[in-house]
């Protein structure tokens, strides 16, 4: 007797769900295993007094996103894309326009 279609479907979906659960467990264990690494990175940020992630190195305002000023990047308007695609993936830091300092 050949297998019913519904049995095959349940088997496929069941396998997918099982795989998804295994991946969730993988995510949990990996995240736990990465904790010391993350602590070491935070420690590096503390000792070197780093403020930004090294994601996009092509412009100062994408390399040090948090330290961007109003003049260098985003010159025409805050969403202007000078460096594509990184300029389109980053947005101006929220504090850029409502900073503690008065704007010049």
């Amino acid at each position: 007797m050949t297998a019913r279609y519904s049995t095959l479907f349940c088997a496929i979906t069941g396998t997918q769900l099982l795989l998804a659960c295994l991946l969730l467990i993988h995510a949990e264990t990996e995240t736990a295993a990465h904790q010391p690494l993350i602590r070491r990175k935070a420690e590096l940020a503390r000792t070197l007094e780093l403020s930004d992630l090294c994601l996009f190195t092509e412009a100062s305002y994408t390399r040090h996103l948090a330290l961007a000023d109003l003049r260098t990047p985003f010159q025409e308007y805050p969403m202007a894309m000078e460096h594509f695609p990184s300029g389109s993936l980053t947005s101006p830091p929220p504090h850029l326009t409502e900073t503690h300092a008065p704007h010049p």
Binding site: S51, D52, L53, L65, A66, L67, D69, M79, M81, F84, P85, G87, S88, L89, T90, S91, P93, P94, H95, T99, H100, A101
Partner: peptide, 23 residues
Amino acid sequence: RPIIRNEILRTYDALFSWRGGLL
């Protein structure tokens, strides 16, 4: 121009916002 740590964190929270060009 002081930048406080929360603002740095918020900057990276806004990274890859869905309104960004490529996204």
